[in-house]
Design a protein around this nucleic acid. Structure first.
Length: 530
RNA sequence: GACCGGUUCGUCUAGGGGUCUAGGACACCGCCCUUUCACGGCGGCAACACGGGUUCAAAUCCCGUACCGGUUACCA
């Protein structure tokens, strides 16, 4: 039988990082064994579920490129079948009606109330089989039900025995029946509850492997009870370790906010491939000293055996912009940006520039400017201009996210860029002479490179081209003439021309910006005027 | 409280009785490169939770303790 797995989120918020990893592991496993990866939205809790969440989850999955097979299943569509199942269990005597009035929620939080109740029932010797309605006669039960008295349907768990299963990650798991309550299958208002719905749907969908968070470990025992009552062999279970906050506590939407949401990473300029890579290595490893895995490699190497048993921490520092999310996630992203094939990166850069109104159609123009000075290997099979190719390749080396192309890299694509105040102070205003020198350097460039412009094609005459070696000679001579260090000129120019204090070799920057823009910017007095 | 699970550098992890004076990655620190730098190169700091066993030999196996987490709903 071929493998069928499912990702089954409940739509009560955006796609959480832990859920995203669960989805990824399901996806990788399915692809690894050539099975199907299905998606089911567990929207049985009408009060908490909403369409907005479903949309957000779908968006998150789409961003991560975890495409599912077959149609999305909405659990609420199957409620009738769930009810039927509960009723048949009742008819077979494997479940019973509980006429106990539904408890009203108290003042304390739900969690605390549960804990209190659990403690209380543990102290009383009643145990899990104490429900009086477990024992009433079929006739009495039928009569009361017929008279309209509301009831919940509970599974009748045997007095003695135990549930057991062999978890693909955690190994043999056993639990005494005495530790499991007669769980409610159907609420008194007729609503099917989680455990029933999951089992019914997993059966219906032909799920062979259930891969989910280990917070479901105890639910699994309850679900096995339902499978047994139904006379159906349970699927294989594989529980995943949890992803915790830096304080080892729960990573929650309420406490940690946006940082746990997939859309945050999409919007912050992360590459899906990089984030997937990061996620894959949180709780799983191939047992080798390797960090960067393409999706195909992950699929090829993924195995349930490689999943860890201990919870992992999603490490970040609140209030520290440099470490606002897990350092390793940031590193993966930066690594992908600077090393991935340029052709794969370019569409993302284009989208980023477009979103910030920095895109120009000329970047799209197929290569006509063949005469690249530094005769590059950057093949332009592409739909992008050579200048665009070179610029992106040059500046990506020091970038972390796609956002950097429109922020730090703005000056390459627009004349409208801000100068970083700290950079201005350090590299320009500290050397007042630069106010005269830089325009003077512009004059020098203009006379030396008259007629030449970017692209540095052969301009025919004896004019030198505006390329690194030639620029270097001119700037060096200029600095010497002024009796100053080369760095003063270079750093001043860098700040004025790019707005920031860091970047690639200044010679490359001059060249890539071209003579015309270089002259214009060197003559600008904005750094001193305002 | 009860039941279940977990514990290797700050974090992600390798390791499954001897090859472990415990390896890699991120972060951090230092040096180098350099006109700057968040690129790159080299190096450094830094861990087997604790206590008992078993064994010639334990990070690896067993037991206990501690700590952390999960669950204990007519939530999912």
């Amino acid at each position: 039988m071929s493998v069928r797995v499912r990702f089954a989120p409940s739509p009560t918020g955006y796609l959480h990082i832990g859920s995203a990893r669960t989805a990824l592991f399901n996806y990788l496993y399915a692809r690894h064994v050539g099975g199907k990866f299905l998606l089911r939205i567990e929207d049985t809790d009408i009060a908490r579920s909403n369409e907005e969440s479903t949309r957000s989850i779908l968006e998150g999955l789409a961003w991560l490129e975890l495409g599912h097979d077959e149609e999305v299943v909405f659990q609420s569509d199957n409620a009738d079948k769930h009810r039927e199942t509960a009723k048949s269990l009742l008819a077979e005597g494997k479940a019973y009606r509980d006429f106990t009035p539904k408890a009203e929620p108290g003042d304390s939080s739900v969690k605390d109330a549960i804990k209190e109740r659990a403690r209380a029932s543990a102290e009383g010797s009643a145990g899990m089989r104490a429900n009086p309605y477990r024992l009433i006669s079929e006739v009495e039960s039928d009569t009361r039900a017929a008279s309209g008295e509301p009831f919940a349907i509970r599974l009748k768990v045997s007095e003695t025995g135990r549930t057991a299963f062999d978890d693909a990650v955690y190994g043999i798991q056993e639990r005494d029946y005495a530790d499991t309550e007669d769980l409610v299958l159907l609420r008194s208002d007729g609503h099917p509850l989680y455990n029933l719905a999951v089992v019914c749907d997993d059966i219906e969908m032909g799920i062979t492997h259930v891969i989910r968070g280990q917070d479901h470990l105890t639910n699994t025992h309850k679900q096995i009870l339902i499978y047994e009552a139904l006379g159906i062999t349970p699927p294989i279970f594989a529980h995943l370790p949890l992803i915790l906050a830096p304080n080892k506590g729960k990573l929650s939407k309420r406490k940690h906010g946006e940082i746990v949401s997939m859309t945050t990473y999409r919007d912050a300029g992360f590459l899906a491939a990089a984030f997937r890579n990061f996620l894959a290595l949180l709780g799983w490893s191939a047992g080798e000293e390797k960090e960067i895995y393409s999706l195909d490699e992950l699929i090829a190497k993924f195995s349930l055996e490689g999943i860890h048993r201990s919870n992992g921490i999603f490490n970040f520092k609140e209030n520290d912009p440099r470490h606002w999310t897990d350092d390793k996630a940031i590193w993966f992203n930066a690594e992908y940006i600077r090393t991935m094939p340029l052709a794969e990166l370019l569409p993302h850069v284009k989208a980023e520039l477009k979103a910030n109104k920095l895109w120009k159609d000329e970047y799209d123009s197929p290569i006509t400017d063949e005469g690249l000075a530094n005769g590059s290997e950057l093949t332009a099979d592409s739909h992008y201009s050579t200048w665009f190719l070179h610029t992106v390749d040059l500046i990506r080396q020091r970038f972390f996210t796609l956002k950097d192309f429109s922020s730090q890299g703005r000056a390459y694509f627009s004349e409208d860029y801000d100068l970083d105040a700290a950079a201005v102070a350090k590299n320009l205003t500290k050397f007042p002479e630069l106010r005269e020198w830089l325009p003077e350097l512009a004059e020098r460039f203009e006379s030396e490179f008259a007629g030449a412009n970017w692209p540095p094609a052969d301009t025919g005459g004896s004019d030198k081209t505006f390329t690194e070696e030639n620029i270097e000679a001119v700037v060096k001579a200029f600095a010497e003439e002024k009796g100053t260090k080369l760095g003063v000129i270079m750093n001043g120019a860098r700040t004025l021309l790019t707005g920031v204090a860091v970047g690639p070799s200044m010679l490359s920057v001059f060249e890539i910006l071209g003579l015309e823009r270089t002259l214009m910017r060197l003559r600008s007095q904005v750094a001193w005027n305002g």
